[in-house]
Design a protein around this nucleic acid. Structure first.
Lengths: 204, 204
DNA sequence: TCCTTATTTTTACACTGTCTAGATAGAGTT
DNA sequence: AACTCTATCTAGACAGTGTAAAAATAAGGA
């Protein structure tokens, strides 16, 4: 069979389904993500995905894994174009975090919606990929927190604090959250982060 | 007609649907919330809810409003049983926040899932009730932040900081979040909050 | 070539949200 | 009391969804 004819096999249906899902969400929001629509967009029957993903939950995890990969890339890019000052680096991580949450809002919502994060019924390989990619972005933040002091008796308090802070800020005060502040203008996150008055570890 | 016979009218179907929805979620998670199941549990046909809510989105908003009411109550209760020291009060607010997020996790997830927060197609009265109740809990947090200094040039930085912090912490580090820390044990939130080193306003 | 496996389609089913038309109850109004 | 009018509810239908099973097709090796 020549390459010009349409083969029965798709070639890389798995990849096509992930891409289709991301596109559907970017175009029409989280709820537009549907197994059948993904299949249709990939040019394949609605039951075809079953051979690559155990079900819609499994496909969602795969999409979330891809999202976390983009996420880590976005944060890393922001870091590389920032001078190696500790505070500037940490600001860059948060900047990347918030920019991604804005630019890929539906994907971001999916990634951090805990009702999708039931890995128990998922193909182990897909679950593993998701966890690894998710840890990647956290590693960048952890690394950026390294130079700063922690609270006494909590070796990781800074990273927990900053992660909670930036994540909560992204969830609550991004564009389109109708619940947002009954309390005047929202400060820039950079100012919020500076308000933590983090201290460089002695001897650095 | 005597009160003993079953009337054609339900009596308070609207209320019954809200309760049914909350019960369904508490029993089987967020995804168990379904228009038809709510109707069934309220002992009514699947089309009956249409007269009280424009659709499932509208019912969800009503449930979220009820949730925010419980939420504010839980926070207020925690405040009243705490001595009127500013820092203790703020800790109490966060304690109430996190306890609620744990004890009513599906409801909490629903309340803060922005994909449900499209008020544009909703009955205005339902939307208004939701916004009012949502602002109630925020008011308590704002009030507890009142005694503390804000960052220069941001009159509300403390409340934004604390709200982001506690909300992010609740989302990321509650039980069952499979993405949680690749980084050792999670500190108590009280320690995290104390780490902010908030200062009482001069003259208080 | 034949067999085996991987991939996809077809068909079917239960469940969901929504819409329509019709039935019934409740509350006036005259 | 009879009549209307409105609110509420039921019954039925429809398109879309996820999932499962069986049949068809392609790909690759023996």
């Amino acid at each position: 069979m020549t390459k010009l004819e349409k083969p029965h096999h798709h070639g890389d249906l798995r990849e096509a389904l992930v891409i289709a899902g991301i596109e559907l969400m970017e175009e029409n929001g989280v709820d537009a993500l549907t197994l059948r629509k993904c299949a249709a967009r990939a040019g394949v029957s609605h039951a075809a995905p079953a051979h690559h993903f155990k079900g819609i939950a499994s496909l969602k995890i795969a999409i979330m894994a891809r999202g976390h990969s983009f996420f880590a890339t976005a944060i890393a890019k922001e870091m590389t174009r920032t001078p190696p000052d500790p505070m500037a680096q940490l600001q860059a991580v948060c900047q990347g975090y918030l920019v991604f949450a804005n630019r890929h809002n539906p994907l971001f919502q999916l990634m951090f919606n805990s009702s999708n994060t039931d890995l128990s019924t998922i193909t182990p390989a897909v679950a593993a990929e998701f966890l690894q990619n998710a840890h990647e972005s956290y590693g960048l933040l952890k690394q950026a927190c390294e130079p700063f002091e922690n609270a006494p008796g909590a070796a990781n308090s800074t990273e927990i604090t900053v992660w909670s802070l930036v994540h909560g800020f992204a969830m609550l005060f991004n564009k389109d959250s109708s619940r947002a502040a009954p309390t005047g203008p929202i400060p820039e996150f950079a100012k919020i982060l500076a308000g933590l008055e983090l201290r460089i570890k002695p001897g650095l």
